[in-house]
């Protein structure tokens, strides 16, 4: 039987933040790059995001936050995924994130941050190169 490999990505907006233009643009771009994108909507708790990521067995979780709460919410998602054994999921983030916050986010397991001005082509390439290779 032929094995069909598709990168599955969960895009989520944690916390109290109603700005979803960016995440929607990205969702369409990733779909057009041949990925299966699961969008879960606004105002998600880290617990909801982790549970959805587990059930959907995604390769990548993309978090978008424009409210300033990224330092709390992003690491919490990583923690919850690890606690449930999903430590091989690639977690990346985007939004209004000050340069000075990036080192700590990376230290806490968010593997890349794409701030304002990041190009969609770069995000797609990053995911294609870094999504975990599964059987």
């Amino acid at each position: 039987m032929a094995t069909e490999r598709k990168i599955r990505v969960l895009l989520a907006k944690p916390g109290l933040d109603g700005h979803d233009r960016g995440v929607k643009v990205l969702a369409m771009a990733l779909r057009d790059a041949g990925m299966e994108v699961i969008y879960t909507g606004l105002r998600q708790t880290p617990e909801q995001i982790a549970a959805a990521a587990i059930q959907e067995d995604v390769d990548v979780v993309g978090l978008s936050c424009l409210s300033g709460a990224h330092n709390v919410l992003f690491p919490r998602v990583v923690e919850l995924l690890r606690a449930q054994g999903a430590d091989d999921v690639l977690v990346i983030g985007g939004g209004i994130i000050p340069e000075s916050d990036i080192p700590e986010l990376k230290a806490k397991g968010i593997q890349e941050i794409f701030g304002p001005g990041a190009s969609i082509a770069d995000i797609i390439r990053y995911i294609q190169e870094h999504a975990p290779k599964r059987s």
């Binding site: 969702a27 299966e36 994108v37 699961i38 969008y39 879960t40 998600q44 909801q48 959805a52």
Partner: peptide, 17 residues
């Protein structure tokens, strides 16, 4: 593209946990 945008979960958030 072979890709897909799967958005049905947006309406089912109350059951995620």
């Amino acid at each position: 593209s072979g890709g897909a945008l799967l958005g049905d979960r947006v309406r089912m958030q109350q059951h995620f946990l």
